[in-house]
Amino acid sequence: MPLVINCILIFILTACNTTTTIDEYRSFDEGVTVSSEETIALLGRRDAGHYETDDEFVACVGDKLRSLSLNVLPERRLIDALYPWLEPRTAPKGLLRMRQLIQEPLINKAITERGIRFLIWLDGSTETLDRNGSISCAAGPGGAGCFGFATWDKASVYEAIVWDLSDVSEVARVRVDSEGTSYLIGAIAPIPLLTPVKSDACKGLSSQLEAIFN
């Protein structure tokens, strides 16, 4: 029995690997200084037809930046404060449209009142690429159980684009790719061995953003 437990532990420790690749582009090499009165706002892209940047990922990046004592405006509060100009139908896709929006007195006032200087667009998703194996579960009067073995690969691709709203320009662009394989072992009880692909992508992207804001 201890041998089985050891085997499972070794499997857990070795099997769930994630590869994270970070591509970074900055329009200039120096970091950006954010004063204590200035706020960073995060916003997920939601205009694509087949995916949406999920709230959970945006909140994760926000929490990481907040831990650096930066003022970060939660996404929902930003969208509500500028409603309806950051809805999927109306959100600016480029700087040209953002310049037009910011010229509207009501929108400009709402941004200024909240001290929003930087807007970080987060765009991407986590997808399951490949599934192998199978697991089946059955229940009867005598008991229930699952048997089998299944694996699946997940990939996260996210991009962050930082806009400086003081002069409506692009400050930086960071991209992170993260891949990993998860396992599900059916040994009476289903044992999931999940690879934190999205969480790794969040950490990778946040650490790059941290380097930009000093």
């Binding site: 409603y83 309806p84 100009w85 809805e87 999927p88 139908r89 109306t90």
Partner: peptide, 13 residues
């Protein structure tokens, strides 16, 4: 909820 919020966006535009 997203569809109902779209009413505001569509009418404003």
């Amino acid at each position: 909820r997203a569809a109902l919020r779209d009413i505001g966006a569509k009418l404003s535009l």
